[in-house]
Simulated scan of single mutants.
Amino acid sequence: MANDVEHEKRALRAELRERRQLLSDAQREDAATALTRRLDELVDSLGARSISCFLSTTTEPGTREFVRAAVRRGIRVLLPVTRSDGLLDWVVATDDDDDIAEGLFGLPEPTGEVLGPIAVNDVDLMLIPAAAVDRSGMRMGWGRGYFDKTIGSMQKCPPVYAVIYDSEVLDFLPREVHDQPVTGVVTPTQTLLLSPPRR
């Protein structure tokens, strides 16, 4: 059974990855601009002063302008750094693009003073990557399990929103025991509350 679910997820991830690669530069830029506005609104509506986010790759919904602007507004932004043991370290973001290097999986990650995995326990809001999210709030990542492990281990989890494109909000996703739900999603056109935050 789990094998079937894993095969289903793998096929769906491949389809979603391909769909993202077909977007034009202009579509990506427009999406990033719209997303920055939505993310700003979410941060303001929650009164968040400390958040975690991620540095988007070229095919992901663009978060970099949002991160820079949040830092300039005085919001503390933690960015993830992957570790070989499956955990995430964190670095406080700056508004300088020179502070970015290639991480463990070739993904953009911040350089700077590394804080341990528990640093994220202090944030008011988590913004995380995803391949897709279904309408019950179930999130499917890219298969490495970093964010499932992080969210699952937090004693007091803040609201967690996945940042995705509109077409990646699906009716249903295959799920496994370790998969963690999210509070909602932020897309270029909408912010959806899907499940209540856990306390």
Score class of each variant (00 low, 15 high):
174 P>Y: 07
133 V>M: 02
17 R>D: 15
95 D>N: 11
168 E>C: 14
55 L>E: 04
44 D>W: 01
88 L>Q: 10
196 P>K: 10
79 L>A: 06
134 D>F: 00
105 F>Q: 07
183 T>M: 08
94 T>C: 06
150 T>R: 11
143 G>S: 05
39 L>S: 06
149 K>Q: 13
162 A>F: 02
156 K>S: 14
4 D>F: 12
93 A>S: 10
9 K>V: 09
59 T>S: 13
30 D>P: 00
80 P>I: 00
56 S>H: 09
171 D>V: 11
145 G>F: 00
140 M>F: 03
192 L>Q: 05
175 R>E: 12
33 T>P: 00
100 I>M: 08
100 I>H: 09
75 I>A: 04
146 Y>F: 15
197 P>N: 02
195 S>R: 14
95 D>F: 07
76 R>G: 04
126 M>C: 13
110 P>C: 09
49 R>D: 12
62 G>H: 01
100 I>F: 06
7 H>F: 12
68 R>N: 08
23 L>S: 02
138 M>G: 09
141 G>H: 06
144 R>M: 09
176 E>W: 00
95 D>W: 09
157 C>E: 10
76 R>E: 14
63 T>A: 07
113 E>H: 15
99 D>L: 11
124 D>R: 09
33 T>F: 04
46 L>F: 12
2 A>Q: 15
166 D>K: 09
36 T>D: 09
125 L>I: 09
15 E>N: 13
193 L>V: 08
139 R>A: 03
105 F>C: 09
144 R>T: 02
78 L>K: 10
155 Q>Y: 06
140 M>H: 04
97 D>C: 08
117 P>F: 02
46 L>R: 11
139 R>H: 01
180 Q>L: 03
28 R>I: 00
148 D>P: 02
70 A>I: 03
106 G>W: 03
77 V>Q: 05
113 E>A: 14
175 R>L: 01
162 A>C: 10
17 R>I: 14
138 M>Q: 14
45 S>P: 01
22 L>R: 15
165 Y>I: 01
58 T>K: 10
